[in-house]
Amino acid sequence: MNWWLKSRAVLTLAGCTVLMTLAGLAFGSTELPLPALTGGSGRFLLAGLTPVLPAVLWLNSTGRVGPHTESTAVRAVARWDTALATGLATAVLALTLVGHLLGADVIALTVGRNTIVFIGIALVLEPLAGHRSAAVLTSVVPLFCAAAGWRSGGVGAEPWALILHPGNSVPAFAASLTLLAAGAVFSFVRPFGTRASWLREATA
């Protein structure tokens, strides 16, 4: 356990996640003037970008040792990593919910939900594409949502662009929890086992 904690730098990871969440609470309401906004199609907030960092840092911590080494370990290290991701997501959710109850405005809920969405995406992508590519693909998701996620006609976000919805949207929150659960199960079970995809091999 000590070895795993040290290798994943769990304390640093948890500390950075908390810092990122607090920074998101402080600056999350800042608007980024994306070109897609100038039709009245919506506001892209910084709270859609900063929650990428906990997911990316988790991928960094867990990916530093190559997959080939760790797949031969006696203990299922990958499952511990999945548990770590889920724990981070729960911690951020608890932090933001408590913050919101204590008086922070709706942006706290947005930051919490977006962190869960990105961790869920990272959990889904990591067995498929490897840590490096999953990190880059996860960080492209906010830009993709910003460019393609607004419904034409300016009436809100597409259903699949979870990070664009307002913080108090219950369907988006439920969808994000579902995504996290699905990602955790997928990453836990790893139906492809140690068979690596082309992308995972090329970028390991």
Binding site: N60, R64, A135, V136, S139
Partner: peptide, 20 residues
């Protein structure tokens, strides 16, 4: 920056610095 986190962080920061 640490290897795996470098590209995503550069992507996000680069985007923010030019768009913000």
């Amino acid at each position: 920056l640490p290897g795996i986190a470098a590209a995503p962080i550069a992507l996000t920061v680069g985007f923010c610095l030019t768009a913000f």
